[in-house]
């Protein structure tokens, strides 16, 4: 009986070892990943964080590994991948503080991946479910609204900010300035490609002027006049066929090319102006965040 008991105890000991080691393996993988991360080996660190996720059977540990992996992926610029990986943790994130962190990272990665609608949506979720913590995400939300060109919503949002978040007088002035710049009258005027094409159809070069490229307009109009001149000169000298095949073929190329070019220039000008405007507004919002300690903390952790 004594031997049988000893045998059973030995078996239990031997069988228990691997099951205990699973949690240990996950912790070891986390430790190794942290070391790799500290050493700047972000790709290898992301793999080890994934290993920690794989080896762990506890939702909280999995979420922590996933968040750390997202940190490593952000360092390598793989925001979309970080977002996809974080999505698996959202339903099982565990305590509210972790779930909030997951939502924040998802919002940040969405923003950096160019999915501004997704970023705004995740921030709204964070603000709704975790009002206390979510308020600190106002900068990310405002930046997303700028990228989405939702000016009225941006104005309302900034007006409704908790005064505790933006305590300084100069910040209040900055918000007023943003509101003034995003009013309908102050927004950069877009150049309609269709209108530019229409103008170029009736008066060569005019569509280019409208699109903000007067030099190109003058060049295109001169080219059209020259080709018509070639046609006229050849026709006057009795070379009617040559006038058509050389002069008029050149003219139609310049004419229709000018119409198409005017439309493209208008679209390019509108995009460039809007990009510059968004850049300017984003800088103003970031300087606002510089006055907000909570947002500054968030911005630093995001970097």
């Amino acid at each position: 009986m004594k031997w049988i008991s000893a045998y059973c105890l030995t078996c239990i000991f031997l069988c228990a070892t691997p099951s205990i080691s699973i949690g240990g393996d996950s912790a070891r993988a986390m430790e190794k990943a942290d070391n790799l991360f500290s050493g700047g080996e972000f790709f290898a660190a992301s793999i080890e964080y994934e290993r920690a996720y794989f080896l762990s059977d506890k939702p909280v540990q999995k979420t922590l590994a996933n968040l750390s992996k997202a940190r490593a992926l952000k360092q390598t610029g793989r925001y979309e991948k970080a977002l996809t990986d974080l999505q698996r943790s959202l339903p099982f994130a565990g305590p509210d503080s972790l779930r909030f962190q997951v939502l924040y990272e998802m919002a940040f990665c969405s923003f950096m991946a160019g999915d501004h609608t997704g970023a705004a949506s995740y921030v709204r979720q964070a603000r709704y479910f975790y009002p206390g913590l979510g308020e600190g995400l106002w900068l990310l939300y405002a930046l997303s609204l700028v990228q989405l060109e939702e000016w009225s919503r941006l104005g309302e949002f900034l007006e409704g900010l908790d005064p505790d978040d933006i305590p300084l007088q100069e910040s209040r002035e900055l918000i007023a300035d943003i509101a003034a710049r995003t009013s309908a009258e102050a927004l950069p005027r877009s150049r309609e490609p269709e209108r530019a094409r229409m103008m170029a159809t009736f008066l060569p070069g005019l569509g280019h002027f409208y699109a903000g490229a007067p030099g190109k307009g003058i060049l295109n109009a001169s080219s059209q006049l020259t080709s018509l001149g070639v046609f006229g000169l050849l026709a006057l000298n009795g070379y009617y066929v040559a006038g058509v095949t050389i002069g008029l073929s050149m003219f139609q190329s310049f004419y229709f090319g000018g119409i198409r070019q005017a439309g493209e220039l208008a679209r390019g000008t509108s995009l460039a102006r809007m990009d510059a405007f968004k850049q300017e507004l984003s800088q103003m919002l970031i300087s606002l965040a510089g006055n907000d300690p909570a947002a500054r903390t968030k911005t630093n952790s995001a970097n």
Binding site: N237, G238, Y239, Y240, V241, A242, T245, I246, S249
Partner: peptide, 24 residues
């Protein structure tokens, strides 16, 4: 065909020795 017609036009108007004809 268009280039041939242009060449013929120059030939008809200024003869086979003209620069326009030769170029075309």
């Amino acid at each position: 065909a268009a280039m041939g017609a242009t060449t013929y036009d120059f030939y008809r108007g200024s003869g086979s020795g003209s620069a326009l004809f030769l170029l075309s």
